[in-house]
Design a protein around this nucleic acid. Structure first.
Lengths: 330, 330
DNA sequence: ATAAATTGAGTAAACGTTTACGCATTATTA
DNA sequence: TAATAATGCGTAAACGTTTACTCAATTTAT
């Protein structure tokens, strides 16, 4: 049988209420009694029954996180950032992996919501309407991280549109005029749409009309990179390619290798994300690095201080980190 | 204000107890009333307050999982396996990332334990005694996955000792007589010790006395692989090397590349783990693949049916998957 | 037609913690 | 020294759900 505050109260010869006040550090009590109670709690191996506490105080300090099972490894970095801040501010994180299957998603979300949650954070998920309905029917705060949703959900993300300007400008400055964009397309993620538009507009700002054929991709996967090179064939009709995720870019690099294309001499590559995966290749990938840890920390800070306007988007930093996959040409 | 079973009961004109019986599908009730209640619950947007339920029924279906923040990517595969089985059997997973900092670990574990947990699963963690004490002081089942601990905790893992025999035999059959083993050493994980012994004994079974210099490593990281090649210098004193984790092996491969060593012509590599990372390199890594999904599923099945002896170790499958990093020599 | 068994549903207590309220006791102020 | 304020702590209700017990109504068996 687990130890309760009543047990401690009995042993200390005081009431359960006092023990509760002491252990939660709320209300009035003498330091003397407090010391004794804290010692007893330790000795007796007391564990707070959080369920009872949650039930009693209607508010909660638990934040649920929805992570897609097919997540790229940056999700971990975001979660780490969240953990750090949550730890500082005394919040608790409840991580749930969700499959792409909508029915299972709903079941997972319902089980999440059956705990009194302060908020639900969606990590790089294009949430389906059915699932969103369930979330909305519970009165819980929502926050989207590393994704910009087109509904009223506030989000924290890189500026995917601006990011493409950074990359296109960089490649342009290195003499590139023909560049492809390889990313996911099915189902079309909002992020992909934004990046595509950024890419098109950035090219336009340099007086280049984009070639629709140069935008291609299936999913955020290694194979998409491999297939992209095969699809365009030799000689490649462009001098540079932008991979919309590190894993795609590694696919591009290896696809090029397989086809006897030398990187960066024959083909320049810039990748988006800039996780540690970029260090695993030779040459090391040139990347626009997103600040995932910052996203995570901001997510928690933001939920803790609900001072901002509801529909807003907060952008986190982007840094272009030169690697060895971009050559100057022309 | 959230909807409670009392609200539903009022609207349906029955007692809360009946609603509870219907929604939990326990006890006696008429199908007629049940139908009406279920409809009402749906309409009114009812969410079970799991805290109240947990408090009422002393038993729980929540399984806590401790995942190291510096986890290699296979942890995800194990968690996916666990999720699948947990979903089938109606368990709930509570994932917590733990840092290496022992104090923070204890705080995380305590907050985990303050929910009524059925069990705590430790994922590839060499748990510290201080943390273990906390876990033991709560009456919660423990299970170690992807690690073999030397204390009384049951575990599910690959047979790390046998795995090394498989690899050494494979390399021996390809003509290799001098092979190095690169892994972590500080702090010395139990898994590393087992692999080392397996390596030594496997060599001995072929009449080869092992060279202590050939066992080296710092941590399970890319850099360890890079450094290993640098450390031994040219010409390498061995013809093959075993990387104790995919990420190390990629380091070895890139280290070799950097040093102008051709793989597999001048150096053969076999990696342990066999995650999708092995597909990202050229050549693709030859791997002894662990069955991580199986580990995850077994973990849940095992906790659900506590029929086995307490201190046992269950071994999961290992498969040698030939890639392009082993050459036949001699 | 009577006895026995089954069914549907209500009552009330229990789970462990928190907290508003109130009452002594002690400390502070004029 | 008397009035006032502050302190420490106990009482009791509340949170929402589950479940052992009960009992009337209905069904089945004899």
């Amino acid at each position: 049988m687990a130890i309760t505050i009543k047990d401690i109260a009995n042993k200390a010869g005081i009431s359960a209420a006092s023990v509760s006040r002491i252990l939660t550090n709320r209300g009035r009590f003498s330091e003397e009694t407090a010391q004794r109670v804290r010692e007893l709690a330790n000795e007796m191996g007391y564990f707070k029954n959080q369920s009872a506490a949650d039930l009693s105080q209607k508010t909660s300090r638990v934040i649920g996180i929805l992570v897609p099972t097919n997540h790229t490894n940056f999700a971990d970095e975001i979660i780490k950032g969240m953990q750090k801040k949550a730890y500082e501010l005394g919040y608790e994180l409840l991580i749930a992996f969700v499959e792409t299957d909508s029915q299972q998603q709903i079941k997972t979300v319902r089980s999440l919501l059956s705990r009194q949650l302060l908020a639900v954070v969606m990590l790089a998920i294009d949430i389906e309407d059915a699932v969103l309905d369930v979330l909305n029917s519970a009165d819980v705060k929502l926050l989207s991280v590393s994704n910009q949703l087109n509904n009223d959900i506030p989000s924290i993300s890189s500026d995917n549109y601006a990011m493409m300007h950074t990359i296109v400008d960089y490649l342009y400055a290195h003499g590139h005029r023909q560049m492809a964009l390889i990313g996911a397309s099915d189902p079309d993620p909002i992020v992909a749409i934004l990046r595509r538009q950024g890419y098109i507009d950035a090219l336009a700002s340099h007086g280049i009309t984009y070639n629709p054929d140069f935008i291609w991709g299936v999913e955020m996967a290694f194979q998409t990179g491999i297939d992209a090179i095969k699809k365009f064939g030799l000689p490649l009709p462009f001098t540079a390619v932008i991979g919309s995720a590190d894993i795609i870019s590694i696919g591009l690099l290896n696809g090029a290798l397989d086809a006897g294309i030398s990187v960066p001499n024959d083909l320049s590559i810039v990748t988006v994300d800039g996780t540690e995966l970029t260090q695993l290749t030779r040459p090391i990938l040139t990347a626009t690095q997103q600040n995932f840890a910052q996203m995570g920390e901001l997510a928690i800070t933001n939920l803790a201080n609900p001072s901002r306007s509801p529909h807003s988007v907060i952008f986190t930093d982007i840094t272009l980190i030169p690697g060895g996959t971009v050559a100057t040409i022309g």
